[in-house]
Design a protein around this nucleic acid. Structure first.
Length: 259
DNA sequence: TCAGTTGTTTATAT
DNA sequence: AATATAAACAACTG
């Protein structure tokens, strides 16, 4: 699930509960989520360190401490939980950061991504290198520049983290649906008006999704209709189209997202 | 049993 | 260089 809005929610969990809290110990229930660091190294590096204000870039959550920074990526099924000390371990709680006030749990069923440790800014930058600007920071003019010259399908461009960081499959489809743009349109073929609409809907969808902590499966949204048995466009009732674009299942309305 | 899944990386081909 | 596709990762769900 985690796309930008979900990760923004996890950032809120960390900011609200863990900021200023110091790590007593780190319990690693499954080292399969540790990337480039062993359980022992993680515990040794963080013991006694205190969490500072967390940041987010795209789908990455950056948790600086007065020592190294913890970098979280949630893959498709990850989340961050704040629980009282000693709360029973969920089956998918892979790593627990124990603080005086409570426990921060990295929970993840499929272990597609995970946790890395960055000592200093350059290590942090190395991990995040290659990411495009955060989707919330992209201005209309910047979007124009990003799309110019790209022959690839707009859907594929939107979910490419190297281009814009934060948009996933559901968000991209939702944004294109609202903007009335067919997902297979070459990015550079969008008119100025379409690019403006795309930018406006990107901001609007992100804002609403952040408030909900996820891309909300509301009936009035594409996301609320796409997984029905006979999916229809919430706006016009037309049967929705479905295909693989940019390697992901893509859903669109043939009526008002004409090619 | 089998297809499908909201993320990313790598390999391969065009 | 850009673009497209498939597979792999892991662990489910329908």
């Amino acid at each position: 699930m985690p796309e930008l809005p979900d990760v923004e929610g996890f950032r809120g969990v960390l900011a609200e509960h863990a900021t200023g809290q110091c790590v007593e110990r780190v319990d690693v229930a499954d080292a399969g989520v540790l990337r480039g660091v062993t359980a022992r190294q993680l515990g040794d590096a963080l013991r006694g360190r205190c969490f500072a204000r967390p940041q987010r870039h795209g789908k990455w959550l950056i948790a600086p401490t007065d020592g190294p920074a913890v970098l979280f990526h949630f893959g498709m099924t990850g989340s961050l939980q704040w629980l009282e000390r000693g709360a029973p371990l969920n089956r998918y709680d892979r790593v627990t950061f124990v603080t005086g006030a409570g426990e921060l749990r990295y929970r993840d069923m499929r272990k597609l991504q995970g946790i890395t440790l960055a000592h200093g800014r350059d290590e942090e930058d190395r991990v995040l290198a290659g990411l495009g600007p955060d989707a919330l920071d992209v201005t209309s003019a910047e979007l124009d520049r990003i799309l110019a010259g790209r022959r690839g399908a707009i859907k594929a461009v939107l979910i490419d983290q190297k281009v814009i960081a934060g948009l996933g499959n559901l968000l991209a489809d939702e944004i294109l649906w609202r903007a009335g743009i067919h997902p297979r349109r070459p990015a550079r073929s969008l008119t100025a008006g379409e690019r403006r609409a795309l930018h406006r809907e990107m901001r609007g969808v992100l804002r609403a999704a952040i408030r909900a902590g996820r891309v909300p499966p509301r009936p009035s949204w594409l996301t609320g209709a796409r997984d029905r048995k006979d999916p229809r466009c919430p706006r016009c009732g037309a049967p929705l189209c479905r295909a693989q674009i940019g390697g992901r299942t893509t859903v669109w309305c043939p009526t008002h997202q004409a090619s």
